[in-house]
Amino acid sequence: MSLRVGVVVFPGSNCEGDAMEAVEGLGAEAEVLWHGEATTRQVDAVIVPGGFAHGDYLRPGAIARFSPVMGAVADFAEQGGPVLGICNGFQVLTEAGLLPGALQKNRGLKFLCTTATLRVDSCRSVLTSGLAPGTVLRIPINHFEGNYTADPETLAELRAEDRIVVRYVDNPNGSLDDIAGICSSAGNVVGLMPHPERASHPLLGSTDGVALLQSFLDAGGAPARSTTPGGTPERHAS
């Protein structure tokens, strides 16, 4: 049976179809997790996709974090399930407190759609476990608020725990320490501004996103890193 990937849809999300197409291309089954339903059902992995949840009104992710589904996503993450926030999804995860720091407006004060060069700096996340450190990837970015920031303690902690997953080789948006993506302490929750699903087909100009998504799916297929004794895949019971 193939892996089940839940893709969260808020009003205003727009990359959900792309995320589903990309993981289905790798053999997974994708399904929508509706923002108003407080469940992640029986999925093996969760993607919070890009877009403009609730129009990005107030602040990207500021309204979406209160959606019923986000409580279920937090539970899923707590139980070790792999969670990937892409672009607006990364912003939502930081607002929801699943990842530290915040994304502010780009240094150039303009929306930026281009292809960025990234370097994989940590392989302890579910997104990068299948890649070698130092791997260079060409992945599109597409955001106005992608300028990562965090307080000095948080940055020190991210560095000390090897949680800075990917960095920009040529920082396009002013992100602190060139950070393009980070992960949680356990490595199962990852957020990044670049869009791996947009680098998933030769006709799109890059297939560098495939290795990232494949790692993520492999993590979803691995036995759950449950926090409960006995290691049963607890998350499937919710």
């Binding site: 303009k110 929306f111 597409n142 947009r198 998933s200 006709l203």
Partner: peptide
């Protein structure tokens, strides 16, 4: 101009802005 526009959504964009014509899957 065109870097301020999302030109890639829907994973169709084979040739985006800046060329002679846009080409979509």
């Amino acid at each position: 101009v065109y870097r301020q526009y999302d030109s890639q959504l829907f994973l169709n964009t084979v040739e985006g802005p800046g060329g002679d014509a846009a080409l979509l899957r």
